[in-house]
Write a protein that binds this DNA or RNA. Structure first.
Lengths: 330, 330
DNA sequence: CTGTTAGCGCATTCAA
DNA sequence: TTGAATGCGCTAACAG
């Protein structure tokens, strides 16, 4: 930078200010500095900036999975917002247990990032406090309630939209295939299952406990759960799946059994996975990418000292496609 | 670090050496320094290390997409290897055009990372040169041939495995649904289509050009392409899809048309997408996560000054499931 | 509006 | 094997 300063005939301080869009530089001077910098193909060293008390202009994004559609989609949104603001994205995939602990232990102390975006897993109060006391902003995204700024959908409401759709079609013997994430000690999106159990009482559904299946998150497990449901003495007339991936597995079991949707059984999922449109799956749509965008925006706002909404809830919408219909004998 | 040095009764130089596992420190001294550092919950400032001539211990991973299964899976592999080596992962999603240019322009000059892992998109020679001259290592992963270390599958071979399977079953009127990525100027995995066109000649297949469809990468487009194929005067008896996502779309069109696989038509994909097992799709399996692991390992080796394999090709394997069989009048 | 000065925290010479 | 000194490149006070 010294070279640029000299070539522009100004001091390093002015150069720094010009390069960082800071106030207190005459427009003409600023332009001259910028021009010289361009000629020298000069770019500031982020390491030096950081060391000198500045920020890192890096954001850590913490996810429990990478190969699942939801997380990729959130990342797209986060990436777009961060890049637009000139921030870099550091990706951390942390599971539960040791590597998670070490993550929350080491990251803030090392001052590697200005903020943390936690996606899909709740950070404990201790972890949160650890971050904020180190001056690191934190925002969460994706199905959870947290004591810090959060953007998510209303999982409980989404579950209701799905169940109500089935109930309104006339179904009474409704099953749910719920998901449990083996990689998470707390399951953030219990709201979907809650909506189901509530509806069971409020809308006078068949309370048979065998109609509630809980399996790991995968199409295969969805298929197995569906097989178990079909094996019941009296199979359900409709199934609510915690996610589209589970629903897709269920659909396949139904087909293999020689049954048809929605003639023999209805299936509704939640998410609106890219393949769902093609598989004609009725589902509750959420805008995942937008959640990423918003969460990143909130984090950036916090970094800028602006007020943040404490909890933003994005709407969901029932998308009726071909896998749901009235039960057989109306 | 000064505090630690004082508390341990040694100089900063010794402290630095001890903390960085460098030679020239008496075991006893090293242990004492480490112990003091632990008590003080001290961690080195990466910014200061970098500034002082050290490396960043950061790797940039460049991908064209984030919400597609393949890229999430590669990232899982990369992340695992990088984390194990104590490196951080900076994620860059770059498309084509302006933001891509600016990426390759700015990243190396800013010395933000020690190396770059390019996934799924070929870097031009100019871009590659720009990186290496700035002292940044580069390794590629995923379906492409590049003038620098690369790990991929043999796309041509994978295509062959798929076509041969169909030919061996007795099919002669075989169609291909190829993928074109609207986000990429160069399409790296042309090998799959090449295998198809070659087999057409070598194995005496029906050369009807209408049997070759090329569509954007999505289940929906796969479905549309399949509809076009079914609308032909003489539909194919088998279809090779460039990827499982396209194949899944095709399968759905087939079902909607009241046809059955493999009775009326056979379908084979490439990838072994997580949903393929559940949908019983015959496919050619590739180990995507391993590609990520290996690519990261190669990059790390290069950084360490070790020899790198110039081009590593991972095996693929035909997985015969329920969507392929002999043609109707065998 | 601009310049001067003083660190930021570490790795690395070169001596001892 | 260890220590003292130097500089990495920049930003933030403070002065002018």
């Amino acid at each position: 930078m010294a070279d640029v300063a000299r070539a522009a005939g100004v001091s390093m301080a002015t150069t720094s200010r010009a390069l960082n869009d800071q106030p207190g530089v005459a427009p003409a001077t600023r332009e001259r500095v910028l021009e010289v910098a361009r000629q020298h193909a000069y770019v500031v060293s982020p390491a030096a900036s950081t060391l000198s008390g500045g920020a890192t202009r890096r954001i850590a994004v913490v996810v429990p999975h990478l190969s699942r559609w939801f997380f990729g989609e959130v990342l797209e949104g986060i990436d777009a917002t961060l890049r637009g603001a000139g921030y870099d994205l550091m990706l951390y995939r942390v599971g539960e247990g040791a590597d998670r602990d070490s993550f929350f232990e080491l990251l803030p102390a090392r001052r590697k990032v200005d903020g943390v975006l936690v996606v899909g897993i709740p950070a404990s109060e201790a972890e949160q406090e650890r971050l904020t006391t180190m001056g690191v902003q934190i925002v969460a995204a994706g199905g959870q309630v947290a004591p810090y700024p959060t953007v998510s959908i209303d999982d409980h409401g989404a579950g209701r939209q799905a169940v109500n759709h089935l109930v309104n079609l006339g179904h009474r013997r409704i099953a749910m295939i719920d998901a449990i994430d083996p990689n998470a000690s707390h399951w953030p999106v219990a709201g979907r299952a809650l909506a189901f159990t509530e509806a069971r009482e409020e809308r006078d559904l068949d309370p048979d406990p065998e109609l509630f299946q809980r399996v790991p998150w995968s199409a295969r497990h969805g298929a197995e759960a569906m097989a178990a449901l079909l094996a019941l003495d009296e199979p359900p007339t409709a199934v609510l799946a915690h996610s589209d991936e589970l629903a897709i597995g269920a659909l396949h079991t139904i087909r293999r059994a020689g049954l048809d949707t929605p003639r023999d059984i209805s299936v509704v999922g939640i998410d609106d996975h890219p393949l769902s449109e093609e598989l004609d799956l009725t589902t509750v749509r959420q805008d995942v990418r937008e959640q990423g965008r918003l969460a990143a925006r909130m984090l950036l706002d916090g970094l800028a000292g602006l007020d943040q909404a404490p909890w933003t809830v994005l709407p969901t919408r029932l998308v009726i496609r071909g896998t749901t219909g009235r039960p057989r004998q109306g």
